[in-house]
Nucleic acid binder design. Structure first.
Lengths: 326, 326
DNA sequence: GTGAAAGCGCTAACAT
DNA sequence: ATGTTAGCGCTTTCAC
């Protein structure tokens, strides 16, 4: 345990209140006692007990963010960006991972509340009325990083459906007439719809339908092998992968069989990762701007923490990044 | 603010203590009152105020970890692994990023203490006696994720010098006789030595010296352009890059100039990233086992939080991963 | 200019 | 089997 205000008061021969006035630099206090207290405080390495402060104030100047994991680059980028944004506003960011465990996600939210975080950012894997009710009843503001999950509350994200559509149109414009949507993650382990990926698929189907081109959906776990098999048709297909890692796996599998991008097939992915920028050929992709999502989410949450503003819906633009893989 | 123990007590017509006994399920209490209280608690969505609990106990069941950022895959993997490990032991992990800002790092440590975290994991960017003293004086245990930074305390990491040496020997065994060590990050922005990278360099020099082969060090920010220039010597050099991203940049720069790996040069990197596993050619690398580092760090810290055990030094093995880039 | 007192929600030692 | 009391470290109101 470190030095406390009480100890400082005793040592300086003054009352708690006086110590506080010195520490906070406000209220009527003589320069003399003030500097004495400040000096002693420094001497004894006084550090305020933030827990006690939080108990009194009900606030903590901490914002919480829960994400599934930090495996791929998407969430790390978001989290990093949120941290930077809220730090600049005087908040600390408490980052937690739930490892794709729904109970864990709920537990973390409860823990956040129990620890008096001032607000929560989340991209929930929990679905359903019960969960929505739980979120609605939170005593602190929260921002959802998805436009389609908890539909009515404040949220920020890209329009996944539009992105799916735009990506598909881009592939079609490149001359591809046989499209495949690669998404082993359309459903989570509890067979519940993964809305983000589903919206992308919806956009894909819409664009493909509009253009009247053939399309298939590869939603199995063995999508890479399936992609290899699919090549036997020799119809120069194009794969739209709902995640950069999927694209990477597909390309690797096809390369192993001697198929070459552009020459034999086209491929494009969601998520634009730094790691791929030096790939050869460079992957065409939808950049979903994680840094911007993080920044907007952070800004929105801080704003909500300060004023009791209500719902706001921030649509972050996506961007088609041309590559050499189509 | 949610329901409190006091409110529950009032509602149930009992004292605080009785409510606590019901909630904690210990102490003498009649089944009748107990179930009444439990039922009311559920009804009113009672959630313990963890801040108050922490103020009383001085503990929080929260462990803190500070990392520079989450840009590359190294720290996300570590953090993920620490989280999994300590969660399994009943601890929550509070993740903070300092964005390569030394003051920020110190501030976060102080905040951790102020928030009663039970222990801290860190890979410090701060150096020097003052900082070491600060760390030594922490009221809670801490684990350093580097074998060479705060040398005397508990730590876990790989032997970077040995790794540098082994990697270099591997390159030499592949027939390369002109070696380059690529490390734009030997010093931080304050011109202080970045010990991890420096140890790798030391190992590199030692192995190169032993084998009597030529070597150079590329430590400038424009290492990629320098690598391109260096190719004019046409002596079939090999690059050992102290970070996967550096290798990626070098390969991209050389590819742009028409140089082909193995045929024209060899390349190898530290950090084995998922993202590169489908690269072509597959990059030879030193796998520094971030998951294992995270796991060991988590286990060690939990152990220290439980018993007042002293320093322990966990050396995590590294591994040379063969590739097609040499 | 300084201090006393109450209270945030919870825990634990000590009654009854 | 249940209640009383004191206290964790801090903030805030009100009094001197």
């Amino acid at each position: 345990m470190g030095t406390t205000i009480n100890e400082l008061a005793k040592i300086c021969g003054v009352s708690r209140t006086t110590v506080i006035r010195a520490l906070h630099g406000e209220g009527r206090i003589s320069d003399e006692t003030k500097s004495l207290i400040l000096q002693k405080a420094k001497e004894l390495h006084y550090q305020p007990n933030l827990v006690a402060r939080s108990l009194v104030s009900g606030k903590s100047m901490i914002l919480g963010i829960v994400v599934p994991d930090l495996h791929n680059q998407y969430f790390p980028k978001i989290v990093d960006s949120v941290a930077k944004t809220v730090n600049a506003e005087g908040y600390l960011l408490n980052i937690m991972v739930h490892e794709d465990d729904k109970e864990n996600e709920k537990r973390i939210i409860r823990d956040f509340i129990g620890h008096n975080v001032d607000g929560i950012i989340i991209n929930p894997i929990n679905k359903g009325a019960d969960f929505e009710k739980m979120m609605d009843n939170l005593p602190v503001p929260h921002v959802v990083m998805s436009l389609d999950d908890l539909a009515d509350g404040p949220c920020v994200g890209i329009d996944e459906t539009a992105a799916g559509e735009a990506a598909t149109e881009y592939m079609i414009s490149k001359g591809y007439r046989n499209l495949l949507f690669v998404a082993p993650s359309l459903y989570d382990r509890d067979h519940q719809l993964n809305i983000g990926h589903h919206c992308r698929l919806e956009g894909f189907e819409r664009a493909a339908g509009k253009a009247g081109v053939e399309y298939e959906i590869l939603s199995v776990q063995e999508y890479a092998q399936q992609a290899v098999k699919r090549m036997k048709k020799k119809d120069h297909p194009a794969f739209l992968c709902s995640g950069a890692m999927f694209a990477s796996e597909v390309m690797a599998a096809l390369r192993d069989k001697g198929y070459k991008p552009v020459q034999d097939y086209g491929i494009m992915s969601f998520d634009q990762l730094d790691y791929y920028k030096n790939w050869s050929p460079r992957l065409a992709a939808v950049d979903n701007h994680p840094e911007q999502i993080g920044e907007e989410a952070g800004k929105l949450l801080v704003k909500m923490c300060r004023s009791e503003d209500t719902a706001e819906r921030v649509v972050v633009p996506f961007q088609i990044v041309e590559g050499e893989s189509l």
